[in-house]
Design a binder for these strands. Structure first.
Lengths: 192, 192
DNA sequence: TCGCTTAACGCAAAGGGATTGCTTTTACTC
DNA sequence: GAGTAAAAGCAATCCCTTTGCGTTAAGCGA
């Protein structure tokens, strides 16, 4: 639900959406998240507050939309020539980005103003798509170490989920080594 | 940070805290979460709004505190005579409680108004303590199936984390069978 | 291309939640 | 039992939120 289905996706609506999102990003960079306010964002975007309230309903839902956009991967997982190297590198980068101060804030915002869970689902879909790219590449290479490449959901359950759980619930002591261990155990133990 | 460290834990402060928490629970049951408001809670608790703002800073932080209290396990994991049965039963119950409508709401609230992550850490600590009880019992029995009982963190990473991840990010299609599978793979595959 | 329909936006007012300085109460300490 | 300071009460102010109504403009069919 990141690109919210607009009944009227044409010119003006699209312009308003773009300028409001831009205003959020600018003000967040300039004054910090805590200072954000619907009237403030509206003023910067050249829009009236009621427009934002009617379209997004809430500051948190607006921030959730913006956060999901920023969590969208902007690059494909790098190719290191093998499944293990690819997955390890991707997991390390994923943990690094997500556990940063900014990453945490975006995750929280994305989960926050998300009544139907659509934005959260989008986040998960982004990660799943990245994982799929890595796994597909391995299959194309014909890799069959230890019973073939793991299933997409196995990686989501045993690599992505633990990382996100620790970021959200155990904010201390996260390192690239942890991501490496998770990948190792998923590829070696290969449950299923 | 659920029992917030009070510089002055004595009589009046404790009474205020108790009556405010009680007011939140009552009003939530009567009028639903969406209707909650600091002035409303304050009135029910027989307190002025400024008291709540000064102590909790925010409605969300107050709700976060109350949510953590409600996420505290009120019973020890049942003893089914063996590690596998114990862990399976606990995981099924955990998933069931956490994925309910109420459970989801509490998890969200707990994560929400939680600047320092203290409340989220408390939630994780609750689950970890339950897992420890199950694992300790297995060790006392001298169980050594497939290399001994798994480490606490292995269960957190491969059973608890996937469950919480799906609850938060993939709200569709969660079942007791999923919890069972996670336990199976953790006990059998035994990565490390 | 022109007009029709209606979704989306602007405007403005009112209602109420959030914030804060000051006073008063009351735990804790000596 | 007196002193100190944290915590709660009080009250006024600010501005966010909400809502009704008029206006604009996107989508659509003739």
């Amino acid at each position: 639900m990141s690109p919210k289905p607009m009944a009227r996706p044409g010119g003006r609506s699209a312009r308003v959406q773009a300028s409001v999102h831009a205003a959020v990003r600018e003000l967040e960079a300039e004054q910090g998240r805590a200072a954000l306010t619907v009237p403030l964002v509206a003023a910067r975007a050249g829009v009236t507050p009621s427009t934002i309230y009617r379209r997004w309903g809430d500051l948190q839902e607006l921030l959730s939309d913006v956060a999901v956009e920023r969590l969208r991967p902007d690059t494909e997982p790098a190719d290191h020539g093998g499944l293990r190297a690819d997955l390890t590198a991707w997991a390390e980068q994923f943990l690094d980005e997500m556990s940063s101060t900014a990453g945490r804030a975006y995750i929280r915002d994305a989960l926050l103003g998300d009544p139907d869970g659509g934005n959260a689902g989008q986040c998960s879909a982004y990660a799943a798509a990245q994982v799929d790219l890595v796994l597909d590449r391995a299959r194309e290479r014909g890799e069959n170490g230890a019973g073939g490449a793991p299933a997409r959901d196995a990686v989501m359950d045993h690599v992505v989920a633990p990382i996100m759980y620790r970021i959200l619930f155990r904010p201390e002591g996260l390192s690239a080594a942890y991501a490496r261990e998770l990948v190792e155990r998923t590829l070696d133990g290969l449950p299923d």
